[in-house]
Design a protein around this nucleic acid. Structure first.
Lengths: 148, 148
DNA sequence: TACAATTAATTTGTATACAAATTAAAGGTG
DNA sequence: CACCTTTAATTTGTATACAAATTAATTGTA
């Protein structure tokens, strides 16, 4: 039986390894992403646009769980790099229409090899990966639900 | 059979949910940690000191996988709050001796309830938690190993 | 149709994160 | 013992993150 105070030990924490994993994985991506002039968060946003050509700040944020105040400067950077365009909507001036460019679409070709390379580093069996995947989404759903 | 380009879809990413989980969990901690005047990273560092009263920047960084350039300002903040002391070593002037204070030790009492509250939000069965835990450390070890 | 309420994005402020450069101290070697 | 190398921490620069405040536009309603 675990004492309440033992739960504060790092080795008994479940969140700590998740935090570490996220950081180390992001760090691992860096050299590959540098070759295509992206950071990890920018890569996530580009993946979003490789599936959905046009969107707006709010919808991006809802999918990627990113605050608009994080997205605003990030999208400006992607615009400067020529991967997306940002145009204030004429129908509803509150919205910003964000759209992938041809250059942005072409970037997908260069990024193609990254998932496999990363998968090799993470080096989980197919079964382990599936288990991890579903557990992560379970935690996500539970944590989000507990917000209500 | 998955096409190479399908691996770039967000729903096929294993790293993306880890990234999301880490962020959302950190966000979930915030209100509880605010009550004891800590951020999540500061909390991690305090957990470290609840197990090891005295250390230095390098050793903290090695355990928590934090760069010294992240730790320097963070430790100064913890010092300002009175939870630790920072004293340049007299034996080896390159080292900074970082030590928990009485106030820092007392903080543990206030933090005691946090792990259980967080566990309730995450809401995994014992078995799931163990599986997740070991998978996270497996990924961590694999990713670190791939750095050599 | 004025105007209050709502909504979307931006700005501001604070706190990570890490790479690269710098500083300062200690160790190793001819 | 001078000097080169190594090591530990700090500083600098860039990029997230998010809360709270602000701005600008639209919507709902009396």
């Amino acid at each position: 039986m675990e004492k309440e105070e033992d739960l504060l030990k790092l080795k008994n924490q479940i969140c700590f390894p998740i935090y570490l994993c996220s950081k180390e994985i992001t760090r691992k991506y860096t050299p590959w992403l540098e070759e295509i002039d992206l950071t990890y968060t920018q890569y996530i946003v580009m993946m979003y646009f490789w599936e959905k050509e046009k969107s707006n700040v709010k919808d991006i944020g809802k999918t990627l769980l990113l605050d608009s105040s994080t997205l605003t400067p990030l999208l400006k950077k992607l615009e400067n790099k020529g991967f997306i365009t940002r145009i204030r909507s004429k129908i509803d001036g509150r919205n910003l229409e964000v759209e992938i460019t041809e250059k942005g679409k072409k970037l997908k070709e260069k990024a193609k090899s990254i998932p496999k390379a990363m998968g090799k580093c993470i080096d989980l069996s197919n079964e382990e990966a599936i288990t991890l995947y579903s557990l992560m989404y379970k935690v996500l759903i539970n944590v989000e639900r507990s917000n209500q």
